[in-house]
C-alpha cells in the first residue's frame, strides 16, 4: 500500500517507501509537533511513510569569508544520513573558491576542502563549479589552463568545471533546490 501525506499528485516522481524499520529520520531531534505538518490521510501518521527525495545544493559563499561552504557540507551529510540523496552540488559566485587545491588552512582550523572531497568520494557525490565564475576568480582546471595559457591549473580533480546549464538542469531534476548564499 502506498500512502503519503500532502498528496502524491504534487510529486511526479513520487517514490513512497515504508521505512518503519530502521527509519533514518529517528536521528532527528524534531518532535512531530515542532514543524508544520502536511495533513495526513486519516489513520496514517506522517512518520510511518517516507519518500526518498533528491536535493540539489547551490553554494555561493567564499570559504574564507562566509560560512556557507561549511553549512552546506553539514546539510549534505545530514541529507545522506537521512536516506535522501544529493543530485549535485553546484558552487557558484565566490563558492567556486572551495575547489582551489592550493588552499592551506591553518592547522587549528578545519580543512573544508578535504572534508568535501572525502564526503563526496564516500557517497559518489557530484561536485561542480561554474566555469564562468571560476575563470573570473582564477580557479582553473587543466583544460581551461591550456585554453587561456595560464601558469597552473588549481582545481582539485574531485570537482568538475561545468556550465551554468548544470545548475538549472539540477534544479529541474530535483525535488528540492537549496541555496547557501554568501
Amino acid at each position: 500500500m502506498i500512502a503519503s501525506p500532502g498528496g502524491v499528485a504534487e510529486w511526479p516522481k513520487a517514490l513512497v517507501l515504508k521505512t518503519s524499520e530502521g527509519r533514518p529520520s529517528e536521528s532527528s531531534n524534531l518532535s512531530p509537533s515542532a514543524i508544520s505538518m502536511q495533513s495526513s490521510p486519516p489513520g496514517v501518521s506522517y512518520d510511518c511513510y517516507r519518500r526518498i527525495m533528491m536535493f540539489c545544493l547551490n553554494v555561493h559563499g567564499d570559504p574564507a569569508s562566509s560560512q556557507s561552504v561549511h553549512s552546506a557540507l553539514q546539510f549534505a551529510k545530514a541529507t545522506v544520513a537521512s536516506g535522501h540523496e544529493i543530485y549535485r552540488v553546484f558552487f557558484y559566485h565566490d563558492g567556486v573558491r572551495i575547489a582551489d587545491c592550493n588552499q592551506v588552512p591553518p592547522q587549528d582550523e578545519s580543512n573544508l576542502l578535504q572534508q568535501w572531497i572525502e564526503f563526496a568520494e564516500e557517497h559518489s557525490l557530484e561536485l561542480t563549479v561554474c566555469i564562468a565564475a571560476a575563470l573570473k576568480r582564477g580557479v582553473l582546471n587543466e583544460d581551461e589552463r591550456a585554453r587561456y595559457e595560464r601558469v597552473a591549473a588549481n582545481v582539485y580533480p574531485a570537482f568538475s568545471v561545468v556550465g551554468l546549464g548544470q545548475q538549472i538542469e539540477a534544479a529541474i531534476s530535483c525535488d528540492r533546490t537549496i541555496t547557501f548564499p554568501g
Binding site: 531531534n29 524534531l30 508544520s36 528540492r176 533546490t177
Partner: peptide, 23 residues
Amino acid sequence: VQRIDYSGMVELVARHQPIVSWH
C-alpha cells in the same frame, strides 16, 4: 525558538517547497 540539528533541517526541507534563502 526551537533548536534543531542538520537532520532536523533535512526534515524541514523535505516537508516544504519552495526553499527560500534570505542572506
